[in-house]
Amino acid sequence: MPLVKEKYIPLFFIVPALAYEAYFSFYPTFSAVYGSFLTASGKFSTVNYKELVGLGVYHAITNTVVVTIGALALQFLLGFAIASILIRSFRGRNTFSALLMIPFATATVVAAYIFSNVFSPVGGYANSLLSFFGMASVNWNGAGSSFIINVLQLVVSDSWKNTPIVALILLAGMTAIPKDLYDAAAVDGAGWFSRLIHITIPNLIGFIVIALVIRGVSEFNIFAIALLIFPHKLLTTLVYGLFSLAAKPYLSFAGASVLLAFILVFVAIVLVLRKVFAAKEAY
């Protein structure tokens, strides 16, 4: 008898990856969540969370959630439109799809740098464009700038870099849908909109979930772009706040736990939505 049954051997191949993530990621995560309930003297307490509230954590939460929703909405709308174009065959399709690689390959810091120059209240390209069309300048991120405008520029900057990934994933999903389904539906009298609702979206749902999770988690963690566009902490996202708190571990643990809670809720919502849609599909 061999030591281990052969069919169990592949299980051992997963161990290095799991052990690695467990030791360097799960373990610090759990210690952070645990530490967030400790005071500096080691007593169990919720004082860190109370202090976070004093530091304006509600504000950071609102900012993060609004930016995440806005960025996901823009990236999915635009990504869906781009995927719908790329699924067709037309002259210049390859060039167009190569162009999408430009933002994809640009480092986040560089993208943030470019957009900090676009959305500069003075000497910014966005205002140049507005004045070219005869419109008044906007106070993008100077003192007294409006929240909506702040959110808008963060969402646009982030989406420039990340829409191509969403488009590529949705395109993969669309490519996998058999064309016969559309032909059959068209013969059955389904118009453009019904085909979208009854064929495209239900068949894309798995791909939508992947894109939502990959993008959503990193939107919640949005940091470098905000850091460069708002050097004066005008729009503090949760991770941006954590960056400022790095010197105070217990507070930062509390902040991280808040973020973790939100991400878990987000992922849970996405997975539930997937179940709901999958159930609908199976009628």
Binding site: E21, F24, T29, L242, A256, L260, I263, V267
Partner: peptide, 21 residues
């Protein structure tokens, strides 16, 4: 399920993990 579990490790902000590492 295991792939999702691994993805969970992406969810904690890098900053929080970076310091203990």
């Amino acid at each position: 399920g295991i792939a999702t579990l691994l993805f969970l490790s992406n969810m904690m902000p890098s900053i929080t993990i970076a310091i203990p590492i």
